[in-house]
Amino acid sequence: MNRATIAIAGSAAVLALGLLSLSEAWAAIDPTTIVFLFSTMVVNAYLSYSGFFQLALFYLTRLTTSPFGLLVTLTFGSGLLSAVFLNDTIAIVFTPLTIALAQSLKLNPIPYLLALAAATNLGSVATLTGNPQNILVGSFSGISYLFFAQVMSPIALVGLAIQLGLLWWMYPEVRSLQPQTYCPTFRWRIHRPLLRKTLVVSVAMLAAFIVGLPLAQSAYVAAALLLITRRIKPQRVLKDVDWGVLVLFAGLFILTRSLQNLNVLNGVANWANHPASLTLLVTGLSNLISNVPAVLLLQTFVAPDDTQSWMLLAAGSTLAGNLTLFGAVANLITAEAAAAQGYPLSFWTHLKFGVPLTVMVLAIAYGWIVWQVP
């Protein structure tokens, strides 16, 4: 069974055993999180259909064609885009383009794929819209978009720089500054009217986030405005919404509520009361059961006004994604697409890069958050 099916089966078992009534299960689902996540998926789908992500990568690669220059632009470019848009979207769109770009420059794609996977995770830690677990934290804590970005953006930037240094050390072939002969091997279509409209709506949505308007409502209005168009059939966009993730979230909300009612997690409470143990706990759980379930389980022990703990929960669950190949969906997306193109990205190849990266960035994040958010 995939993750969504497991969530459905688990929540059905909860209902069948009488641990929750249907109305209690429905009430356990947080509408703010579901609406926010759905709306950002719609906005990202329109950006993809308009050609925005492909155009962004094209302009990034025009800055340089040297092996190291490409590594720098890919790292910081994908990191920046992941901070603004959902990181999984960046991984899905950029992976085949990155492979094609490396092939056209006659470069080994593996270090660039590692850079892409890690940068999408590192960049996404910077904002509440960067990844699903941050969306959860924003929904439960009420932390403002701007404050979250002010605290977390330095962590993302330092992490991206550390990632760059590690790949430079591990892969000598990426150190060259000599320009490569570039023969583009991929094409895309830019839908200019749709691109203009989507960019205007996306910028307005981000402005609403920054000035402090409700996140879910702002994103929902933006999604609705984009769906009202003659440029592309809305059913095409709605097919691209990851309904499985929305079902997964709904099922996990129900399962978490049943665990609360059964007091199964009382033993975890002591761990969650200290910043260091909370960080280690969410990091371990994120690699054991995935980051979204980890945040859902641990949020029950964090007070709504405990900003430091919410920040540590967001940072730990996101940065833990770089520890192993299975730590984040973005890693698996990159690995599967690379294998399909004949470039296997093994568990051990990723582990040698992911362990030192995660340990260093997580230590820096912990110290920074404890210092900045007493």
Rank of each mutant, 00 (worst) to 15 (best):
I135L: 14
L113R: 02
W26I: 12
F209R: 12
G316C: 07
N44F: 04
Y112A: 05
P275T: 13
Y145M: 05
N287A: 08
F94V: 03
L259R: 02
N261L: 14
V42P: 01
P132Q: 07
H274W: 13
N121G: 12
I29L: 01
W168C: 03
S124K: 08
F249D: 05
G284R: 13
H191E: 10
L199N: 09
A314N: 07
A330D: 03
V14C: 00
I110Y: 02
L332I: 15
T300P: 00
A314L: 07
A13M: 04
I162V: 15
G212L: 09
A4H: 11
G18E: 00
V359F: 13
V93A: 05
I162E: 00
I289G: 06
T283L: 14
A328W: 04
F140C: 02
V137C: 00
S153D: 04
Q341R: 15
R175F: 07
S82P: 08
G123L: 13
T307K: 14
L227Q: 06
A115I: 06
A161G: 14
L74C: 08
V302S: 01
Q180M: 12
S176W: 07
L146F: 15
M205Y: 12
S153G: 04
S346Q: 09
P172K: 11
S277C: 10
A276R: 05
C183H: 14
H191C: 08
G327H: 04
L15H: 06
N121V: 15
L177Q: 06
I369L: 09
N322G: 10
P374L: 15
P109E: 02
N134W: 08
V14Y: 00
F148G: 02
R196M: 13
T185D: 01
Q341H: 14
N287V: 11
Y112S: 05
L114W: 03
G159P: 07
A335P: 07
L80H: 00
T61I: 11
W188S: 07
L206M: 15
G10Y: 08
T95E: 02
L55D: 04
V84Y: 02
I34F: 08
L57E: 07
S66P: 13
A328C: 12
V201M: 10
S153T: 15
Y343E: 05
A224W: 15
M205I: 14
T33V: 15
Q180D: 00
K233E: 09
R62V: 03
T33A: 09
L296I: 14
L206R: 06
R196H: 10
L194C: 01
D305Q: 15
V158L: 14
T64N: 11
R257E: 12
W310V: 08
L80N: 02
L17M: 15
V35C: 05
H191A: 11
F347W: 15
F301Y: 12
L86P: 00
R236M: 09
Y46Q: 04
S176I: 13
L238W: 11
L81Y: 01
T349L: 03
W310D: 01
P132M: 09
F209E: 05
V125F: 06
L351N: 02
S144Q: 14
K106D: 13
P356S: 11
G10S: 11
V137E: 02
G10A: 10
A330Q: 08
R230L: 07
T349M: 03
L107T: 09
L20E: 06
R3P: 00
T283N: 04
